[in-house]
Amino acid sequence: MSDQLRDEIDREVAANTILIYGKGTKDAPRCGFTLETIEFFNRFGYPFEVIDVLENVPKREALSSLTNWPTLPKVFIGGQFYGDTDILGPMDEEGELEPLLRSTFETKGIKPAINLA
């Protein structure tokens, strides 16, 4: 994995509180799981970014080895890796995700766009 690629990923992960590496973009997802992950995060009302790595094989391989996770999408929250909706779904069901998102964004002074109460 080139340093340049590693730095690029580190910068992207640091710059986006919720970051989804996936296939396609937020406006044009090209994989059912990427779309599902976008819809999943839309429910919480926090900003998130989607970075398309569908065609970028070296970056996909770098991400897979960095995270020891073979599939896309790959989700990072507050710089931490959280897998995909197979991980985030159960976390949400157990009431762990919303508090994590709230506290992560609180440190950046960001409130959810919709009132969840």
Binding site: N68, P70, F81, Y82, D86, I87, P90, M91
Partner: peptide
């Protein structure tokens, strides 16, 4: 943790994923 549990299953299915027998999967 859940991530490591899923990693164990992905490892078991790695070959079938790599050769395309499995295209996409959801895990619990």
């Amino acid at each position: 943790n859940r991530l490591d549990q899923h990693r164990m299953v992905y490892a078991a299915l790695e070959e079938a994923r790599r050769d395309g027998r499995i295209h996409a999967l959801q895990l619990k």
